[in-house]
Design a protein around this nucleic acid. Sequence first.
DNA 1: CTTGAGCCTGTAGGGACTACAGACCCTACC
DNA 2: GGTAGGGTCTGTAGTCCCTACAGGCTCAAG
Lengths: 146, 146
Amino acid sequence: MLNKPDDPLDHVTRNGLAQAAGTNIETIRYYEKIGLMPEPRRAENGYRLYGQDAHRRLKFILRGRELGFTIEELKGLLSLVDGGDYSCGQVHAMTVEHLGNIRAKIGDLMRLEQTLADMSTQCEGGEVPDCPIIDKLFANIEIGSG
Amino acid sequence: MLNKPDDPLDHVTRNGLAQAAGTNIETIRYYEKIGLMPEPRRAENGYRLYGQDAHRRLKFILRGRELGFTIEELKGLLSLVDGGDYSCGQVHAMTVEHLGNIRAKIGDLMRLEQTLADMSTQCEGGEVPDCPIIDKLFANIEIGSG
DNA sequence: CTTGAGCCTGTAGGGACTACAGACCCTACC
DNA sequence: GGTAGGGTCTGTAGTCCCTACAGGCTCAAG
């Protein structure tokens, strides 16, 4: 263990961060390489040291990827946080743009949820060989904003 | 144009399908290669011919990818439709499994939506140089099932 | 002071596309 | 009929987002 108990918790190693966030060391390396995660400070021996900020940011990124956001979209969202030189007006415009995207996703997922829930309840426990409910998957879901 | 007006609409070319679904020809080719889309029938000249089924399936896949489902997950969902030799009990189990995943996504997206909506309204039109609302993005979102 | 685990860097591989290249086909215009 | 242009075909190579491996440095323990 490198961590000393009197430090302000900003001393987790790369692997520690990876485990805490539920990913692996290589992914963190990649995100740092492309600038999605910032370069952390280093200990005297050259080891990277991460804190609570990095942990939250990384979890946000990982979950964002699972939710289908691209790296570029996440950069956009995180730029709101990194808070460079945006005016509040710009922030407003950016958030509104993201909101449309997010609400569409929620809508589609809820339709998918509904269809699967219907399938599940109607099939409940049964052993019907040629389950006609399956047709609903495409009948109900005219998915998306197209 | 290859389409003849008296055919039953099952005669769209690959590019036609791509445009209708909002993607490109190469992606369709790839999905056929890995078996996510079926091999379509061919015209006498060897050209592929697609119909309404292919269109719906492709849109489902594309949107599914945007929603963060992996190819394997989509194969699982579509296997419900391709309806091989599943019992209704198996279908039930599979749908229930997917439902958990989908509901978690909905929950996270709604939290993200709420945060962004808050940012948007509070920033509305303003020109505040150092918008403190930005902190909320990480304050509110303890995202995910981790 | 060696052993072994963890960190460092660089590079190569895999999944999901994306782009390019050369040949075939088909309509249009001459 | 011929040919120019575009669309389709197949194959292969490249890109993006990671993931895995290789060789060397660092550190705590025995």
